[in-house]
């Protein structure tokens, strides 16, 4: 953890899914992980909300940021490489929901 996040909703190992929300304007969630299932790798801390900062806002309330790990094979069709290959993306909490059981 880089900064404190006492109110973090998820913990390392939790299965999560990235929301598919089509939000207009500036967001830091890349489209290619939307709707994809991953796992919380690290709780990175609480940071000002970029979606507020981008429009001159004060970034409050701050958002918990997580490092989320995805299996490359879950992200792309016909991915070339090992099934162990992985991709990490830093995602803010309000873009994540619990994913429940695999499948």
């Amino acid at each position: 953890m880089i900064r404190p996040a006492p109110a973090a909703k998820f913990r390392p190992g939790d299965a999560v899914r990235v929301l598919t929300t089509e939000k207009e304007g500036h967001v830091r969630t890349p489209a290619y992980v939307k709707g994809k299932r991953g796992e919380i790798s690290h709780v990175l801390g609480t940071f000002p909300d970029p979606e507020s900062l981008a429009y001159g806002g004060n970034g409050l309330p701050e958002k918990v940021l997580y490092r989320v790990v995805f299996r490359q094979a879950d992200l792309w069709e016909s991915y070339e490489g090992s099934t162990a290959d992985a991709l990490y993306v830093d995602v803010y909490e309000h873009w994540l929901e619990p994913a429940g059981e695999e499948g």
Binding site: R28, P30, G81, D90
Partner: peptide
Amino acid sequence: PEGVEVVVHDSTADL
């Protein structure tokens, strides 16, 4: 080599 796991980090946020 195939046996080496490739891990990509997309630095999208504050790190």
